[in-house]
């Protein structure tokens, strides 16, 4: 199983990374490995972008019609069939295409994971890196002659911020930036504050179980917990992986902005003022 995953996902990605590295080295671009990481991440994101864009668009429409769906559910509480019919009609009216579903989206997870494992290997500072990479590359032209330089703007990509912090205190900016970017993306994805119509619906369903409330509250907290978690990972994992993750998130933010605008981010006080002006 692991073998299969390696051959199907990890090795092709490693080859792409090495190819980019060789190209950048050939062009005498400094910190070639760092730029290869950025390049490969952007490439993967571009490949996935049609999928993500469809999903984001559907997500936007879903958010727009969610008050209506709650209303339908309230109206026909005991008639599952009716709920389904009405919901489908609503989808049709608003041009939501529920046919895509979530499974195609889940297919991108192995790719994201594979990229992670490739980079984890690539930035590790071990003496065998040349031999290990050369074993996997498809063509001789890609073979490494010497170990790659893992420095990127003076930061050794193979080391973790938690190690570097004693010699380079400013390195804490890396986990900090990672957490902030992650927060921005998560916040953008969550719907902007409920409008009046949703509030009304909420009042009607007040008899909901308390358990739901807890889960709901926790979900809201996830918005803050998740970025902190990612920030912590970024603190304890090699800096090269933060470079990957930040490129990945930044691309996500841009794509999200293209589809939704600021989304939930417009709830933030300083952005709200600007919106009202």
């Amino acid at each position: 199983m692991i073998e299969l995953f390696q051959t199907l996902f990890v090795h092709p990605l490693l080859n792409l990374l090495v190819a980019m590295y060789q190209l950048f080295s050939f062009l005498h671009i400094p910190s070639a490995l760092g730029f290869s990481i950025v390049g490969l991440t952007v490439l993967i994101r571009l490949l996935l972008s049609p999928l993500t864009a469809t999903q984001l668009k559907a997500s936007k429409k879903m958010q727009d019609i969610s008050p209506h769906i709650s209303r339908i559910r309230d109206q026909h509480k005991n008639d599952a069939k009716r709920i389904q019919e009405e919901t489908m009609r609503l989808y049709k009216e608003h041009g939501v295409n529920p046919a895509a579903g979530c499974l195609p989206v889940l297919l991108q997870l192995p790719l994201i994971w594979a990229l992670y494992s490739v980079l984890q290997e690539a930035v590790r500072e071990n003496a065998n890196v040349v031999a290990e990479v050369n074993k996997v590359v498809y063509v001789d032209a890609l073979k490494l002659q010497s170990p790659w330089n893992t420095h990127f703007f003076g930061i050794p990509l193979g080391q973790t911020p938690s190690h570097l912090v004693s010699v380079l205190p400013l390195i804490v900016l890396i986990p900090l930036i990672t957490a902030i970017l992650q927060f921005i993306q998560s916040k953008m994805m969550v719907a902007a504050k409920p409008t009046a119509s949703i509030k009304q619906v909420k009042k009607k369903g007040e008899e909901k179980k308390q358990q739901d409330d807890f889960a709901q509250a926790f979900q809201t907290q996830s918005l803050y917990i998740f970025p902190i978690m990612i920030g912590w990972f970024s603190y304890t994992l090699p800096a090269g992986l933060s470079l990957y993750w930040n490129t990945f998130t930044l691309f996500g933010i841009l794509q999200q902005y293209q589809v939704h605008g600021l989304g939930g981010l417009s709830d933030l006080p300083f952005l709200k003022e600007r919106k009202n002006k």
């Binding site: 879903m62 969610s66 529920p98 991108q108 994805m189 889960a215 926790f218 996500g252």
Partner: peptide, 22 residues
């Protein structure tokens, strides 16, 4: 899963609030 994994998963794949089922 619901408490800890669902949110990161949805954020990473961009499927926040897109569920077709209820």
């Amino acid at each position: 899963y619901q408490l800890f994994l669902a949110f990161p998963l949805k954020t990473i794949t961009g499927t926040q609030s897109v569920c077709r089922f209820s």
